[in-house]
Write a protein that binds this DNA or RNA. Structure first.
Length: 343
DNA sequence: CCTCCACTGGAAGATCGGGAAG
DNA sequence: CTTCCCGATCTTCCAGTGGAGG
């Protein structure tokens, strides 16, 4: 298929969505999660699990890996992956779950009440059990969905978050049930562990002998314990070497790809913003730390100049909330002395 | 001590776009 | 076609917060 490729064999293996054929340096976590899900094989209720740890520590990868593994053992279990970043509402989460379980919703896309989706899901689960992965679960805007899902029979939930205290302010009933879930911690990778992961990806994704061991080590060191960053750098390096028709990866390409990997991340974030939020980013770039009142007044000024409809102050605060959740902006202080600043 | 000020954020209502029902 | 209903988003309303300044 890629006869003329000199560097890349399988581009998919160089992405962070790729589910590898084996998991590195995570034996304890792997065993724990297999044990949690095992009851599903006998049609019993499994134990839910909660995975936490910094970005790029293998949480998502592990969850998808064990879910797929189980699905290969038995056809009665469906693996369902949901990113709560993309599906923040109760409706969207249910809609996406049903879609992933193969329920065709083309008949009524909209105008379907959420409770009805819940009923459909319950019926679906009578035929087939599910492992539902809720990634970035702290991004959910409506935690009622957690209550809905956690009380489903014969369903295994895998919840993923960057911080262990993601459920500090959810409903008491949900919290007590979550306390019983298996808390699985993912510590940061060490450089040699990152190297193990990279070498695996290289074996699948690249043609033989295009990258040197010392170069892999260089990438692993710059990644700072974040496997996601390491894989991003590897992909960008490989892609640009391929585009330049090189046969091997030169050292200087690795150095120059580092900032590129960071910019790619930032752009990804900007596309999620509306014109007002982009204007807010502009103001914060110009002003640095800014208090809420000033920020709002400047925003109204810019909106007028750009012929955008003026927005009401409450809407502005909602936008700021979102940007805080996206971790693009951080706030300091409280009440009327609160200030915002770009991260 | 009390009241004012500037901002916060929950709750309810209005509006929009789109599909379904009649 | 019109009417109705849905979720999503924005607006309106308003009680709450806590330092400033009398």
């Amino acid at each position: 298929m890629y006869e003329d490729n000199r560097i890349i064999r399988n581009a998919q293996a160089l992405t962070t969505d790729f589910i590898p054929s084996r998991i590195f340096s995570r034996d304890g976590q792997l065993q724990a999660m297999r044990d949690d899900m095992r009851p599903l094989l006998k049609g019993l209720s499994p134990r839910h699990s909660f995975l936490f740890g910094k970005p790029g520590t293998g949480k998502t990868c592990m969850a998808r890996y064990v879910a797929e593994e189980l699905a290969q053992h038995t056809s009665s279990v469906a693996p369902v992956y949901i990113n709560c970043w993309e599906s923040t509402s109760r409706f969207k989460v249910l809609y996406t779950i049903l879609q992933r379980m193969g329920y065709v919703l083309s008949v009524h896309r909209k105008g379907t009440p959420t409770d009805e989706l819940m009923d459909i899901l319950r019926k679906k689960l009578e035929e087939k059990q599910a492992v539902i992965i809720l990634d970035e679960v702290d991004q959910l805007e409506d935690d009622k969905i957690l209550y809905d899902l956690i009380s489903l029979p014969k369903t295994c939930l895998i919840l993923i978050s960057n911080n262990e205290t993601a459920f500090a302010d959810v409903d008491q009933r949900v919290r007590s049930r979550l306390a019983a879930a298996d808390h699985v911690e993912f510590p940061e990778y060490k450089t040699d562990e990152i190297m193990g992961i990279l070498k695996d990806r290289i074996e699948w994704g690249l043609l033989p002998a295009v990258i040197k061991n010392a170069q892999v080590e260089m990438i692993a060191e710059t990644a700072g314990g974040d496997a996601r960053v390491a894989i991003d750098i590897l992909r960008i390096v490989a892609e640009s070497a391929e585009n330049q028709d090189l046969e091997k990866i030169p050292d200087k390409l690795i150095e120059s790809s580092l900032p590129q990997a960071q910019v790619a991340r930032k752009d990804e974030n900007l596309t999620r913003l509306n014109p007002y939020q982009r204007a807010i980013v502009d103001i914060l770039t110009r002003n640095g730390r800014t208090d809420s009142g000033t920020l709002f007044r400047e925003l109204q000024g810019i909106a007028r100049k750009q012929k955008l409809e003026p927005i009401v102050d409450r809407t502005f605060r909602k936008y700021m909330d979102k940007m805080l959740r996206y971790k693009m902006v951080e706030s300091e202080g409280s009440g009327r002395w609160r200030t915002y600043r770009l991260i």
